[in-house]
């Protein structure tokens, strides 16, 4: 039980971390040291799409933060939701297996008598 509690606390912490980080002062709101660092050279054309809009003022700094956090939140919520669904279902199935095993044993006993 304690293990489970710790797990959920961990989940909450993971989900809360970036939202806390959003308000705290930290390095990535400042501009880049090199100026030309870019993941766009990563060899895949769909990552290297051009960006008329990206040249604009609003995409430079913090304007896109909500998008980043939305991605982050959706990703982890989906994973933990799926893990939660799996564990719930597993618990249900284990119960059902137990019940079925008892039932089978009872039937066997009846028929042997």
């Amino acid at each position: 039980m304690r293990k489970k509690k710790a797990l959920w606390l961990g989940v909450l912490a993971l989900l809360a971390l970036p939202w806390v980080a959003m308000w705290a002062p930290h390095p990535f709101t400042t501009s880049t040291p090199e100026g030309t660092v870019s993941l766009q050279s990563w060899p895949d054309h769909h990552l290297a799409l051009p960006t008329d809009q990206a040249e604009g003022e609003d995409t430079k700094a913090q304007a896109n933060l909500p998008f980043l956090f939305a991605v982050y939140t959706i990703t982890w919520i989906a994973f933990f939701g799926y893990a939660f669904y799996l564990s719930r279902r597993q618990a249900e199935l284990r119960q059902e297996i137990q019940a079925l095993q008892e039932e089978v044993a009872r039937r066997r006993q009846q028929s042997s008598q």
Partner: peptide, 24 residues
């Protein structure tokens, strides 16, 4: 998470939204 949010430099062209790549 700590790398993506605290350590990595911000992309010059794409800005903050480039950090989505580390998940995507």
């Amino acid at each position: 998470l700590s790398m993506v949010f605290l350590w990595v430099p911000t992309d010059a062209n794409l800005g903050v939204s480039q950090r989505i790549f580390y998940f995507h």
